[in-house]
Structure formats: structure tokens, C-alpha cells
Design a protein around this nucleic acid. Structure first.
Ligand SMILES: [Mn+2]
Ligand SMILES: [Mn+2]
Ligand SMILES: [Zn+2]
Ligand SMILES: [Zn+2]
Lengths: 137, 137
DNA sequence: AGTTACTTTAGAATAATTATAAACTAATTA
DNA sequence: TAATTAGTTTATAATTATTCTAAAGTAACT
């Protein structure tokens, strides 16, 4: 646990961010997991602060999420509700979408047979696929 | 022009919407074009109301866009800025994305060689691709 | 023409996010 | 280790897209 914190302290330091109590705790919560995490600041607030004596202020949650994004540790995205969401997987990748939730699909899982040519003067930066799911019923 | 309006009056009526002056004008502006239109309510306000004596209120723009969406004539989507955007192409389709703007890609333009199996109990509803572009430079 | 139901509108309310600036703390320096 | 500094946290205010409210207006129906 202390050794885990060391990892995040390093991660923060090497991104030019002081490893404050709040940032370390947020980083541990976000990045110390097996699967990619997709969340809003409101999610983070509820999940992190609900059962806690010393809460991290909402302003700090916003500040830290922005700092982590600027440092390249989070990727921002939007769903259809005008709320910012963040993805702990910052690589270009694909998603299943069901019931307001995303699940990662590894890039190797999708191959293209045909893809359009970009307009002249432009080239492809990345290609991301969203597979919307529904219940079989 | 009068005949054009007739088209939209029919479109509105057959969707259970009274063809008011405002709705006809908005419909004509949105749907009387060759290419798919992607817009926010703010865009609509600026484009439609800027050089006009009798402006359509922002509340009506919201009301009408929502009514058209409910009637299936608009599809809502999000970019990365917490604003709702609308697409006059309501079919499932793909996009180029560059500089905050989307351009349609017809479904025939993209074919898949490999796509992942949905989780059990779920099936694929649709698949949408976003190709992010950048300048060749 | 009169009645009814729906629509438009200005303005208030809401909610996510950003800005402000004072108190606090990590890092650096003496 | 103490003092200095530069960066951080926080409560609170401001901003902004969107939704709500209810009064005035208009389309449709009788
Ligand atoms: Mn949530
Ligand atoms: Mn705009
Ligand atoms: Zn993801
Ligand atoms: Zn489109």
C-alpha cells in the first residue's frame, strides 16, 4: 500500500505535478485497477468521498482530473448528456456502449476491410469505433 | 419556395406537430439542403436569427429541436465540449472529425474484416466509426 | 365566430463547469 | 531546521447550456 503510493508519487512527479495527499489518493483510485475506468467528476466525487471523513473538495477533483488529462494520463470524452467523462485508457481504442456505460475493446479486436480516403490535405489521426449494444430479448 | 414550405408543412403534420411559422422556418433551414447538417442550438440561433427582424426565441429553438428529435427527424450526439449537437442524418452512419466539425461517411464506405462478439445476452444495435483527421503538414 | 388545445416566449431555475482569491502545504533555500 | 517561494486546495461566486414556468398567442376544431 505504501509501495503502491510510491508508484503514484513517481507518476505525479514525473508529470510535473506535486504529489499532494489528494492527488495521490485520486491517482490510486483511478489507476490502481485491472480494467479501464470510465467516469465523470460526479462519479469520482460519489465513489471517493461518500464514506470518508476528510473529503476532497469538488474543485480539487476538477483540478486534478484536468491536470491528469493535461499530463496525458486521462482522455476526455462525451456521451449524450453534456457531461464530461474521462477514460483511464489514453490510447486510441474502441468501445461497446450499453446503458450509458462504455467497455473497452482492444484495437486488435477490430479490423477494417475498407476505409474511406481522407479529404486532400488531411490524413487519418485515428479511427475509433463504438458498438452500441441492446438486449437480445 | 411556397411549394417547398408545403413539403415541410406535411412533414410536420405527419409527425403530429402543428406547422407553425417558426417550425416551418426551422425545418426549411435544417432539411432543405443537399448535405447532412450537424449543428448545436447555439449554431441554429446564430445562423437563423442573426440577420432577421423577427427572431425565433431560444426557447422555441430548443422546443423545436427536441420535437424534431422525438419525431425521429434529428439525431443527438456529443462532441468533447458538453454541448448537444444534432445531425439531420438520422440513420446509423460514420463520420470524419476535424477541427470540431463532423462530415458524414456513408455506411458503404466502411467494411469490417473482424468485429468482436458482443457479451452474452446482448446483440449489436449499430456500429459507428469516427475517423479523426489531422493536417498532412 | 367561439372554444379548445397546443405553441411561443421571456424570464426564472437548474446543473455542470470554471474562475477567484484566501488559506494551506510541498519544495527550495539559507 | 527555519524561512521563503511557488504551487495547491478550498469555499464560494460566476458562467453557461439547458430546462422549467406560466402567461400571451395561434392553429385547429365545432
Ligand atoms: Mn454518474
Ligand atoms: Mn457554435
Ligand atoms: Zn475506454
Ligand atoms: Zn452525420
Amino acid at each position: 500500500m505504501i509501495s503502491k503510493n510510491k508508484t503514484f508519487i513517481e507518476k505525479l512527479r514525473s508529470s510535473g505535478l506535486r504529489p499532494t495527499r489528494q492527488r495521490v489518493e485520486i491517482s490510486k483510485f483511478l489507476f490502481n485497477r485491472k480494467k479501464t475506468f470510465h467516469f465523470s467528476v460526479d462519479d469520482l466525487n460519489k465513489l471517493l468521498n461518500s464514506r470518508k471523513k476528510k473529503k476532497i473538495s469538488i474543485a480539487t477533483l476538477y483540478n486534478t482530473v484536468h491536470a491528469l488529462k493535461s499530463a496525458g494520463h486521462l482522455k476526455e470524452f462525451s456521451l449524450e448528456n453534456n457531461i464530461s467523462y474521462y477514460d483511464t485508457n489514453t490510447t486510441s481504442h474502441h468501445h461497446f456502449y450499453f446503458n450509458g456505460k462504455l467497455t473497452d475493446i482492444k484495437n486488435k479486436e477490430i479490423h477494417f476491410k475498407k476505409i474511406p480516403t481522407p479529404p486532400i490535405g488531411k490524413k487519418i489521426k485515428n479511427v475509433e469505433v463504438v458498438i452500441k449494444l441492446e438486449n437480445i430479448n
